[in-house]
Computed example of a mutant assay.
Amino acid sequence: MLEIQNLTKRYKKTLAVDQVSFVVPDGQVGILLGPNGAGKSTIIKSIAGLLRYEGGIGIQGMQAKSLEAKKIFGYVPEIPAMFDALTVREHVEYIRRAYSASITDEEVAALFERYELDDKLDKLGNELSKGMMQKVSICCALAIKPKVILFDEPMVGLDPKAIKELKETILELRDSGTTVLVSTHMLEMVKDLWDVMFVMDKGKIIASLTKEEAADRDIEELFFGITEREGD
């Protein structure tokens, strides 16, 4: 479970996030939506431990800042960062050792094959395209077998085959009981994935909705209906 409690973040005099609270239960996919400047990136970076903030963030009942929580938390950033001098293979091996991950060699090989990296294992980080870097970032996050995983605009830069695989991966994570949060503006890409939706604007959650509450309504219809109503 991922639990956000009264999260507040200021950049000097600017209030970027204003007492935001929401929960994504185990075995569900939460979607964080909102226009540019709504505060999504600030929330994502706060959850990932990249920003100082006021309020609380819980991962499986533990404080997000604790070492125990970090061991079961996976993060795929919007802009992947690679080590220039490490190969694709070495990136995942580095994560395996850093987290003392239980993933087997066979499971790692299957990840590389699934994301079409098996013929690029010896390429260095500075030799990879944006899409390839994104795939490596996804594999690194999955290698720790997270209980909670956060994806920030994960489909930007991916080819259609990789997008298909990532969607299937997210559903498999959900079905295995993992908590998933996806921050995105690509509504079409997540329309079949979400269980609970959180819509942000001007630093606040302006609406939250479960798939059951949405019934058969399309995610774009829901999102634009909420944001246009809020604008009025």
Rank of each mutant, 00 (worst) to 15 (best):
M1Q: 11
L2Y: 09
I4P: 06
Q5T: 12
N6P: 00
N6Y: 01
K9M: 02
K12T: 06
K13Q: 13
V17T: 07
V17C: 09
D18G: 04
S21T: 14
V23T: 15
Q28M: 13
G30F: 08
L32H: 07
G34E: 12
G34C: 09
A38N: 09
K40Y: 05
T42C: 06
I44M: 15
S46N: 08
A48C: 10
R52K: 13
G55W: 03
Q63P: 03
Q63T: 06
S66C: 06
S66F: 12
L67W: 07
Y75Q: 04
V76S: 09
M82G: 03
A85T: 13
L86D: 03
T87H: 02
E90G: 03
E90V: 02
H91Y: 11
V92K: 00
V92I: 15
E93P: 00
E93G: 07
R97T: 11
Y99L: 03
T104L: 09
D105V: 01
D105P: 02
E106H: 09
V108K: 07
A109S: 13
L111I: 08
E116I: 02
E116D: 14
D118K: 06
D119L: 12
G125Q: 11
L128R: 04
S129N: 11
S129K: 10
V136Q: 05
L142D: 10
A143P: 04
K145G: 01
P146R: 08
K147V: 01
V148L: 09
L150K: 05
F151P: 05
P154T: 10
V156M: 06
V156K: 11
G157F: 06
L158N: 12
A162V: 02
A162E: 11
E168L: 14
E168H: 11
I170Q: 02
I170Y: 01
D175L: 04
S176W: 02
G177P: 08
H185V: 04
L187M: 07
L187C: 06
V190T: 10
D195H: 06
M197G: 00
F198P: 01
F198N: 05
V199Q: 08
D201R: 10
L209G: 00
K211P: 02
A214T: 04
A215K: 14
R217M: 13
R217E: 15
D218C: 10
L222D: 04
F224T: 01
G225Y: 05
E228H: 12
